[in-house]
């Protein structure tokens, strides 16, 4: 072959990135890549060239299932990675699961009993449970007919939010259920995307900061259906669900 080494490397890199280098030749080149910085640089050069070609491909919005499945998969690793690293979050992650699980049951009871006294448990039982309740923020979101639909809860110093479905939420295809916090004064801001479970199931998501930081001045929570997770500073669309957010202490 009458290529000098650099030319050959560049040619192999180009066909490797293009995808036309295959079979045994591809595997051989992958071995070269591990050892050769020059080969890696050549590949990077071609990746950049081809990325410019990709710019003309029309974007297509994937269905929501991709995001929900991806989120579910990283959620399971996020907790174990944090625990493995021994980060400050790790004791929380081992704590909040059982704690929030319990808080959740109790919070649900309280929130619903406040709305519909006597419908669920006796006040005695409630008082008993209340003694063990960790400090939490709880939001009860109602649909347009005023029916309790989602119960949103998070411990005061935690970042994980649990979303319990009380009634089915029909998220339109290609949309996500974006949760917004509505402060006493000021504009609504996004806190995360909920993937409502089939009632009475619950799902959860992580906020960028603790409930205390984000929600201490928030009086209401709401859900709008957006094309994708809203960015900070975004304006919400029409609210499908809205309701009070209260401190549970």
């Amino acid at each position: 072959m009458n290529y000098n080494r650099a030319d050959l490397l560049d040619r192999l890199a180009s066909e490797y990135v293009l995808g036309t280098l295959h079979g045994a030749a591809r595997r051989r080149f992958e071995k070269v890549l591990v050892e050769s910085a020059a080969a890696r640089a050549a590949v990077q050069g071609w990746e950049q060239r081809f990325a410019s070609l990709a710019a003309s491909v029309p974007p297509v919005v994937p269905s929501l299932r991709v995001w929900t499945a991806t989120e579910a998969r990283i959620a399971s690793t996020a907790a174990s990675v944090a625990a493995g690293r021994g980060s400050p979050r790790s004791w929380w992650s081992s704590f909040w699961k059982p704690a929030l699980g319990f808080a959740f049951g109790a919070a649900l009871t309280i929130a619903l009993v406040q709305l519909m006294p006597g419908a669920f448990v006796s006040l005695d039982e409630l008082a008993q449970r209340q003694q063990a309740l960790p400090q939490s923020y709880v939001g009860l979101l109602l649909d347009r007919e005023g029916l309790p639909t989602l119960l949103i809860s998070s411990t005061r110093h935690g970042t994980r939010v649990t979303v319990k479905s009380l009634r089915p939420v029909a998220v339109p295809a290609g949309k996500v259920a974006q949760i917004w916090a509505l402060p006493k004064d000021g504009a609504a801001f996004p806190i995360g995307v909920a993937v409502p479970a089939k009632p009475p199931g619950s799902t959860s998501f992580e906020m960028s900061a603790t409930s205390e930081k984000l929600l201490s001045n928030v009086t209401r929570l709401a859900v709008s259906f957006e094309d994708g997770p809203a960015r900070a500073g975004a304006t919400p669309g029409e609210f499908a669900l809205i309701g009070p957010c209260v401190k549970l202490w």
């Binding site: 990709a54 491909v57 029309p58 974007p59 297509v60 919005v61 994937p62 991709v66 995001w67 991806t70 989120e71 995360g192 995307v193 994708g228 997770p229 960015r231």
Partner: peptide, 13 residues
């Protein structure tokens, strides 16, 4: 989530 929102449609295309 922001990375996903900003890039998923293009990458899906």
């Amino acid at each position: 989530a922001r990375v996903y929102q900003a890039t998923s449609a293009h990458l899906f295309g």
